[in-house]
Design a protein around this nucleic acid. Structure first.
Length: 474
DNA sequence: TGAAATGTTGGGGCG
DNA sequence: ACGCCCCAACATTTC
């Protein structure tokens, strides 16, 4: 006979944890409540109804979750509206004693959670937010003085020492008791043709762990090949458990040769960067709406809309930059090496505030995540914690030659240039009109002229940053 | 998880 | 044989 459970009925707010495996909120809800109601809350904002890579990914993931839940005898209930109203209202409507969710850590989510908590308390119900998105909760990694780290390397060192704090994966759930209640997913969103979500995430992870990870160190910087894990969308939406990733890594390290082990460690290091940025945004919430280094808020950025639009549309005339922005528009994802470059180009060549780029990324990336996105942008812009120095400026042509030596990445996303042989694809402006036509294109007709000259923009950027940083002193 | 400017060294051509 | 210049290759510094 099972012990009496704490709650008769609980809601699980399936926010950014769209999976059944190793899901802290779902698991503890089924442990502590007799009946469990998994809920998704859809935004009423029409912007999200456009057919974008992001929407397709989220839709596929919700449907995959619905299927997994059905296998357990449950289903997904959908509410539409502001979660701070809908979630407490759902608790009342469905007579739930408690709401379980995974803890968010960016300031906006934390504030929303606070409001949900207050509303639930008023209705005499419990709000239970559980850690799930990071391996080690931010508060557990502090300096000797108990302060949050601001620099990655010492954070990383301490993180490695605290690995015993990482909890094991939760056992699988065999079945769920869910009352028939509310509106199902089909009522709101059609079933998509493509697959995604948890099933796709587990497949991708298994494949990457089997082969890709063993050459990660060398391959990760070459955007033309499939050398990275491409797990970021799954980690952002929670279709893959970060603990599963960690424990699978530990298991495969046991039998790995030294070279593979080195590659696996390089991959784990990137996971720790993700943890680091979660810790930063949780400890320094001001970074979500301004520079981490507040002196950088005085930089006099350009507000040229037309130039910004050219960047967004992949029309800057620098092929490697444009290829990245076109990959983003098409796939909702950009290779990390190219992310750093397009971000450097926006800030250091076009002199536009990194926050414009941050927002554009958040709206278009399938892996949009406040902590990682904000951290990455501030790193490139030189305004953040452990930032790249502000005077470090990427040269778009040098980067292209180094990391896309054959030009294959550019060819994939800018077919107008694909006939240009070899590395000269990275500098189409050096071709004469005759050579351009031989390659089947014309600058200004099929592909834009450069909208700026890198060497000039670089010097102006240095001046702009210098002036900005000195403004507070005087 | 840069790149450009500047400095240093050393080999070879040449008077 | 020697000094001088040139410059590539590498190292250091500066932004």
């Amino acid at each position: 006979m099972t012990a009496k459970k704490k709650y008769r009925r609980a809601i699980v707010y399936m926010r950014r944890a769209l999976r059944v495996h190793d899901n802290t909120a779902l698991w503890f809800a089924q442990k502590e409540a007799e009946e469990v109601i998994p809920i998704m809350c859809l935004s009423p904002d029409k912007r999200y109804e456009k057919d974008t890579p992001r929407r397709r990914f989220v839709t596929a993931s919700m449907w995959d979750l619905e299927k997994s839940l059905r296998r357990l005898g449950s289903s997904l209930t959908v509410r539409r509206g502001d979660p701070t109203i809908e979630i407490p209202q759902a608790a009342v409507d469905y007579e739930a004693d408690a709401v379980f969710a995974v803890r968010g850590c960016d300031p906006a989510t934390a504030k929303r959670d606070q409001r949900i908590d207050v509303a639930l308390k008023k209705a005499a119900r419990s709000w239970i937010a559980l850690d799930d998105r990071v391996l080690i909760p931010p508060a557990k990694i502090t300096t000797g003085k108990g302060e949050p780290y601001r620099v990655f390397t010492p954070y990383y060192r301490t993180w490695l020492e605290r690995q015993e704090l990482i909890t094991p994966e939760l056992p699988g759930i065999r079945s769920l008791h869910t009352p028939s209640i509310g509106e199902g997913l089909a009522h709101h969103i059609e079933q998509p043709s493509e697959t995604g979500g948890e099933s796709a995430a587990l497949r991708r992870w298994r494949d990457f762990l089997k082969s890709g990870i063993n050459s990660y160190k060398r391959s990760r910087d070459l955007p033309a090949i499939d050398g990275t894990s491409i797990l970021s969308p799954h980690l952002a939406l929670g279709t893959l458990s970060i603990r599963k990733v960690y424990w699978d890594i530990q298991e495969s390290k046991k039998s790995a040769d030294p070279s593979s082990r080195e590659n696996i460690d390089a991959f784990l290091r990137e996971i720790v960067w993700r943890e680091f940025y979660y810790q930063i945004i949780a400890s320094f919430p001001h970074a979500a709406h301004g520079a981490f280094n507040e002196a950088a808020d005085d930089i006099a950025w350009s507000t040229n809309r037309k130039i910004f639009d050219a960047w967004c549309g992949g029309e800057t005339g620098y092929p490697f930059v444009d290829a990245g922005m076109r990959q983003l528009a098409k796939e909702g994802w950009i290779h990390n090496r190219v992310r750093m470059l397009v971000a450097s180009f926006l800030t250091k060549d076009l002199h536009i505030n990194w926050q414009w780029g941050e927002k554009y990324f958040m709206e278009n990336l399938v892996d949009a995540d406040v902590a990682s996105n904000n951290g990455g942008w501030q790193w490139v812009a030189g305004t953040g914690t452990d930032a790249s120095p502000w005077f470090r400026v990427f040269n778009p042509t040098t980067q292209a030659k180094k990391f896309d030596p054959k030009g294959d990445y550019v060819r994939r996303y800018i077919p107008q240039l694909k006939e240009i042989p070899g590395m000269s694809i990275h500098e189409p402006w050096r071709l004469s009109e005759t050579e351009q036509l031989q390659a089947g294109f014309l600058l200004g007709r099929d592909y834009p002229q450069r909208i700026v000259d890198h060497s000039i923009q670089r010097l102006e950027a240095l001046e702009m940053y210098r002036a900005g940083f000195s403004r507070r002193d005087s």
